[in-house]
């Protein structure tokens, strides 16, 4: 498939999902099951992207202390948990990664 077609389809789907409930509000009730499932979309999708970045930096599972991406990720998780601050989390993770390499 042509890259432009991929972008247009992907963009149309993304825009459609962003518009969905804004447009439909008041016209129909969101089913309870859908509402419930939607709540779990961000943690599921984001964790599915995070996990390989930390545990498989070279495409193989690395649980050792020498896996600097994992160590930096653990530091970032702790900072995010304690501070809830995006910028601090990114900085702490980056500094840990650079310091350990």
């Amino acid at each position: 498939m042509n890259i432009w077609l991929v972008m247009l389809l992907g963009g149309a789907l993304t825009f459609g999902m962003r518009l969905s409930f804004i447009y439909l509000f008041g016209r129909f009730e969101i089913p309870v099951m859908v509402k419930r499932a939607l709540r779990f979309v961000p943690p599921a999708v984001l964790s599915a992207i995070i996990a390989p970045g930390l545990f498989m930096p070279d495409n193989t599972l690395d649980l050792s202390l020498s896996n600097v991406h994992l160590m930096a990720g653990v530091v970032a998780i702790l900072v995010a948990w304690r501070t809830k601050n995006t910028l601090l989390t990114i900085i702490a993770g980056m500094i840990t990664l650079l310091a350990l390499r």
Binding site: P42, I49, A80, T89
Partner: peptide, 8 residues
């Protein structure tokens, strides 16, 4: 991944 950690 760091940005996503902060979001999750």
């Amino acid at each position: 991944p760091l940005t996503f950690i902060a979001m999750v």
